[in-house]
Design a protein around this nucleic acid. Structure first.
Lengths: 286, 286
DNA sequence: TTGCTCCTCACGTCACGTGAGGTGGC
DNA sequence: TTGCTCCTCACGTCACGTGAGGTGGC
């Protein structure tokens, strides 16, 4: 018979651990002295302790181990638990690899610029939303502000005529698949809880009037939330697309800008604004 | 101004999280209503919240993030912390890969045998120990038991002559580098706290008399603790060496057997015994 | 009046590490 | 008597999730 101290040395576990395993009925001393409460162990108990340590080493919880040991290690159950654990570890490995890539991208960025930028690219999930929208081909980049205001005007008229209220922020959605400074296919939109009409196509066409449609969500949306004055959004857009390339993603839908500051029509010139730039993305294969 | 609920949706964090960040002075609401205690946030606070989320996403603790944000993100400090984090993640990756390999080895074993064996291979660290030992070339495998008993006899005589007591278990150490059934180079040893003589070589040579020496420790020691009757140790030895091969290790020192049951000399025939089989190992390169 | 949102505690998580405060045998 | 080992609480860990129990405005 060995004292708890001797046995803990033999088994390479702490005394505290042995007391814990006793408490949770996972591994009990061979004998406990009635009067002193001293725990005594025998060397024949070592294989069982080692089995516990081995299973813990595989990443199982003490509760899982207790279940397995009680059931006398049914092979099927064990296989099931180990297979599950295997998947968990593989998932963790992938997450850590992605995390490592992100840390390295940040370090790389610090090397180049000496500091962090004053905005961050985040990945988020966005649910689908009902929007009231109007779409137009904008001749040149200089007409953009004016065109957008006209579209928002039309949208708010639509609300006023129906005596209902918008339910959320303004969006500007850009449908061009490549960068262009003319014939920009822009959709202005406001979130609503109105129901869509049944007999109409759900995607507006440039030049058409105000319609109701569902704006698709995105499982992975790259996003920058940024404070600036209106002309300064370009820098952040560059950052957003650089991030996407550096982190091995590709765009997977139309770029959107969300006006977190309220209505563009109410904006005074050069008021600072908070906007969120979003683009759906997907991880590149392989 | 946004309520905590609205802001939590905008920022994609839970209400509880916002309250926690307030409590730990990491991210406070723009305004708190005196009478109701209601927290109010503004959209301009979003970039700061996003920075926090981004840093958390890299794996930093809230405490580290708080330090970084207070110090206005000194680039050097950030680089330092990220580099440290990078190493941490790489270490975690390696550990998880090793764990995954172990899980897969166990699954593989279950496939082959339908269940777990009644012994487990563990990796442990073993410290150097002082031993009193005697070494001999054993002509054939059949002489082993007799030779070992003779060596232990000599060792206990050594103790008796000096009127000191052994301090630990018996070891049997096998110095052959390959498996052999004759001319087995065996060392029998007992742990002691006696000091080694200064003018003697510290490694005994087969055929020499009883000496005192330090038995080296091992950073990584593959070990099986096993209950059996004396003739049945072979199976476990096979398991030990199979594990070493399957888990991409190589042996890195002499094989040892530790008698956890007491003295071999006192053993009656076919008493069940508990022994530990150990062999120092190192991970294969590449 | 009924929901809804907000508030403040406070427990639980997981496997121990680390005291605090006390006892029994050499 | 002084160490040494053992004992039993009980707090702390980390970033929240999840009630419990209560309040204020539509």
């Amino acid at each position: 018979m060995l004292s708890i101290g001797d046995f803990s040395q033999l088994g390479q576990v702490s005394v505290r651990t042995l007391r814990l395993y006793d408490e949770i009925h996972l591994f009990k001393p061979a004998r406990v002295d009635r009067s002193s409460g001293y725990r005594y162990y025998s060397v024949e108990q070592l294989p069982r302790l080692n089995r516990i340590i081995m299973l813990k080493d595989l990443g199982l919880s003490l509760e899982q181990i207790a279940t397995l040991m009680e059931d006398n290690l049914s092979a099927d159950q064990l296989r099931e638990i180990l297979t599950k654990k295997q998947m968990e570890i593989e998932k963790e490995l992938q997450e850590n690899e992605a995390r490592l890539a992100r840390v390295e991208a940040r370090l790389h960025q610090i090397e180049q610029e000496g500091q962090l930028k004053n905005y961050e690219v985040l990945l988020k999930t966005v649910e689908p939303q009902m929007i009231v929208s109007a779409r137009q081909l904008v001749p040149t980049i200089n007409d953009m502000y004016y065109s957008r205001c006209k579209l928002f005007s039309a949208i708010y008229n639509w609300f006023d005529q129906r005596l209902i209220e918008p339910q959320g922020n303004e969006f500007a959605i850009y449908h061009n698949t490549e960068y262009t400074e003319q014939d920009i296919d822009m959709e202005a939109a406001v979130v609503t809880d109105a129901k869509p009409p049944k007999n109409k196509t759900s995607v507006p066409v440039a030049g058409e009037n105000v319609i109701v449609r569902e704006l698709p969500g995105a499982r992975e949306m790259a996003s920058i939330t940024y404070q600036c004055r209106p002309p300064d959004v370009g820098q952040a857009i560059v950052a957003l697309y650089s991030w996407i390339a550096e982190n091995d993603y590709s765009t997977d839908g139309a770029y959107r800008e969300i006006h977190l500051y309220g209505r563009e029509l109410d904006l005074k010139n050069y008021d600072p604004i908070t906007i969120e730039m979003q683009v759906p993305v997907k991880k590149n294969a392989g």
